[in-house]
Write a protein that binds this DNA or RNA. Structure first.
Lengths: 351, 351
DNA sequence: ATCACTTGTGGGAGCGCTCCCACAGTACCT
DNA sequence: AGGTACTGTGGGAGCGCTCCCACAAGTGAT
């Protein structure tokens, strides 16, 4: 029986040492070739590469991580219990962007579900155990302790939506303010006079910015902002229904609704239908996210598209850069990085 | 300057050795406590646990992986380029199930995107580098070399849909055959006589099984199976459109369509509308997946729900068991495991 | 009292790699 | 000729852990 581990020594994966022996060089030289160091002669490099190919050598990740103090992996922290995250396409799109950015890298992606308190506890542990080189944070609430924990642990992190106007972490965001303005300006341009807004969860900074955009668009068009036309939602379908009911009671004369998400708009639409309002004839409806729901709604929903995939890609790129900066001998370029990507209004029949 | 790595020795994360010194015991004893070995006296255990708490000790994953030859991580291999994977909710649901099964475990989830040849190449490398203890495989095509590679490398793996009737790997599947039967039986019970079927990609075993279910349901109801009513699709919206057009040309008298996915059904719906057919009055429509699209379609789409989240959970459970079996000293229970979960027909207005 | 076993414990060896120091060899100056 | 530099290379030390052997101490049967 082998002394250690599951697979015995014989016939196991080849090690650096074995490659070195085969190529007739020292361990250090093989390491240099593997890691692309320039301080190796052409002849030696060729010999080592041949040995690597013959033996099918692949460096052991754990050993490398232990010796070099890096893991070549980053984590995407997913606030799992919020079902919203999975029912909306946001997550998938983000993931695709992250995946794309990682494609030409040696980096691997670790998905960490951390919603419950216990999980967040454990998350800290894992990160402390240095399981990853950096962390991508999405959908963070204002009072989430995680970002600050990461700062304290000096773990590179990038956050998808800044928590406030003066976010300290590197962040990537879509232009929530501008997107909301686009939506409202569009409705006004279509001749609507009484535009209501169902907000998102207001502890999310992006939702606040959408409200700001809504307000400013109205003001600049010379309309007074009527607070009775603003009803808080929570990004969900049920929230959309509740908010729409409240709005119809307060301002039955409204002729347009800008919802902070497509799902919210779907909820609003149900209530409008039940109240006998035709879309867009009586009430124009604009959503946010440009999700599959928007395309398949009846009538198809005008919606603000966020470049979520691009955001995922940008976040990853920024994180990789930060990780590289942290490596020994890197020339630190520690500017604070805040990136904002433009949104796009996708016009459909609902407005 | 610290000699090694980014973080210097001083003030870094505490090590086993430091905990041992603090608790006044040996390194081995601390290791035993950390790993829950019963061969430790109560007093010692308490002392060690106190030291761990005081120092905030967290075991270093890389060191453990290197010494113990295990990583406490499993991989979910995602065939990324197939956009279908991201646009359908299949993926999210699966992921949620996997996450749920992992919640009470120490296991972490590594997401590996492997679609292009180059990526699959690299995937083999990563797996060979022993980066994970086991692999979850979803949406595998009949000619995918990956499953066999994994068998050969003796890496525990569980596959989401078996590749054929005699799959060698442990697999979890939903009852594609039964689901299709449910759908067709439902249509017949509603009085439909001419039921067409738009298939999925026929190199996917599950799609074949749905065709089998479609055929058998018709036969057992005493109907002849007309091959002209079966048109191959590819699970996509465009495929659904093309197939529907072909079917309408060949059999303009059809009064029901069973589509192999909701997205396919959405494509079919468009063509039916353009052809002036009313749903469900002229043609009843049934989809597969019970996705958000089904709920938001006009009219809402009757669809076969697969317990995808449960599948993800089951796959993960099975994989964890296999991984545990592989560990030294485990009592091997090497039965071949094939699990099939029941589907459910969700009836809506389209049929 | 002796032997045999059990329980708890310490610490050496080793996992496979990276980092870095030492040194041989060569080249180019003074 | 001697010095100074640089290039390429070998291999020791060490990353932090697990595994296992050795051994002390206790327990009970002979």
């Amino acid at each position: 029986m082998a002394s250690h581990g599951v697979r015995g020594r014989s016939g196991g994966r080849p090690t650096l040492e074995e490659v070195a022996a085969r190529a007739g060089v020292g361990r250090g030289t093989v390491s240099r070739v593997i890691n692309g160091s320039p301080r190796v002669s052409e002849a030696t490099r060729a010999a080592v590469e041949a040995a690597v190919a013959e033996l099918g050598y692949v460096p052991n990740t754990a050993a490398r991580a232990l010796a070099a103090n890096r893991t070549d992996a980053i984590a995407l922290v997913v606030p799992e219990p919020e079902t919203r995250f999975f029912t909306e396409p946001y997550f998938s799109d983000m993931l695709r962007g992250v995946g794309a950015a990682l494609t030409d890298t040696e980096m691997q992606l670790l998905l960490i579900f951390a919603g419950s308190d216990r999980e967040r506890q454990r998350l800290a542990q894992y990160l402390a155990a240095h399981r990853v080189d950096g962390v991508l944070l999405v959908s963070v609430h204002a009072d989430d302790p995680l970002p600050d924990m990461l700062s304290q642990l000096e773990i590179p992190a990038v956050i998808s939506g800044p928590r406030s106007a003066d976010e300290t972490l590197t962040s990537v965001d879509s232009d929530n303010y501008g997107g909301a303005r686009q939506a409202v300006e569009h409705l006004l341009a279509r001749g609507r006079r009484t535009v209501a807004h169902i907000t998102g969860r207001l502890d999310v900074y992006g939702a606040q910015r959408r409200v700001d955009g809504y307000r400013d668009a109205l003001r600049e068009a010379g309309h007074a902002v009527d607070e009775l036309l603003i009803e808080p939602g929570d990004f969900s379908e049920g929230g959309g229904r509740r908010a729409m009911q409240a709005l119809l009671e307060r301002r039955p004369d409204l002729d347009a609704v800008f919802a902070a998400s497509d799902v919210t708009a779907a909820g609003a639409r149900q209530v409008l239908r039940e109240a006998g309002r035709r879309i867009p004839d009586d009430v124009a409806l604009v959503g946010y996210d440009d999700s599959a729901i928007a395309r398949h709604m009846e009538p198809p929903l005008t919606s603000v598209r966020q470049p979520i995939e691009e955001m995922g890609r940008a976040m990853t790129d920024l994180l990789l850069r930060e990780v590289a900066d942290r490596r020994p001998s890197a020339t630190r370029e520690l500017e604070r990085r805040q990136m904002v990507l433009a949104t796009e209004l996708v016009e459909r029949a609902s407005s």
